[in-house]
Design a protein around this nucleic acid. Sequence first.
DNA 1: CACCTTAAGTTCGTGTGCGATTAAATCGTA
DNA 2: TACGATTTAATCGCACACGAACTTAAGGTG
Lengths: 150, 150
Amino acid sequence: MSQARPSSPKLADFLCFAIYSANLAYGRAYKPILEKLGLTYTQYITIVALWENDNQTVGGLGEKLFLESNTLTPILKKLEALGYLHRRRDPADERQVIVSLTDAGRSLREKGLELNLVKATGLSVEEFPKMQKAVTTLRDNLAKAARGVG
Amino acid sequence: MSQARPSSPKLADFLCFAIYSANLAYGRAYKPILEKLGLTYTQYITIVALWENDNQTVGGLGEKLFLESNTLTPILKKLEALGYLHRRRDPADERQVIVSLTDAGRSLREKGLELNLVKATGLSVEEFPKMQKAVTTLRDNLAKAARGVG
DNA sequence: CACCTTAAGTTCGTGTGCGATTAAATCGTA
DNA sequence: TACGATTTAATCGCACACGAACTTAAGGTG
């Protein structure tokens, strides 16, 4: 195993890699919990977004989830097939599709699915919201930069 | 658009969602830079890991990248096809595959590919390493929890 | 109204992630 | 040494993420 040159950038110093690998770790932590419900992580946060605001358009939902319609459409169709939501064209604008939860979709919330992985983060009650805020700000700054602003 | 119930969990309070969406934002910020090189993000960090330590096994590389061989194998084959690395069985243990950079793979480092998105994060020089450390610790705690430890 | 432009979703192809299975090599132990 | 257990990659199928192209609907201008 040859040595790296002194100038070599270290993976451990990359913030992008920390975020990337933390995301993988979160997915692995959530998986055993979510698979008991037959949901993937993306399907789960889609349901959560609908708990927060029902009857959203695909585009509106995508804005909140940071996903394009080409990603959302198959997920929404899957959740519709599972009986958790309905999709219907907006009669006032047939281009848009309104997504709304079914009783089954709403009842997931009451089914004890208040996933709580706070303990697994190792963060204290004071640290948790600070971290959450900091990562959210980071995300918004990156999104701004990607749009060419800043 | 109906109102959410008071008890409804808000997406904006989820640390997992902050990480998830920050990862998407990072990918979008990196894409225009990396596609000039014809590399994806995962291919890029694989190259970085090999800059740091050349001649690694698939498993060893996977440990550093937090990826399994089922994910890495097609990526390594692609990078081999692009001429950036070689794959060969270890003569001392034919089960293992040694991955090593080619001159082309090493030269990517000199080609000014020291991607620097620090400014895009909006973090100060003092904040950046703190954030990087905090997210790394979070990732390690989550990984520990997912393994059933803790 | 006819025509062009814009907007919203869908479809398709590529590239990850990952669970499950397989193939091959090595190890351990009687 | 023979053989079952373990280790390491690779393969396969499924589910995202996303660029690009397509379809349909709405809006704007003459």
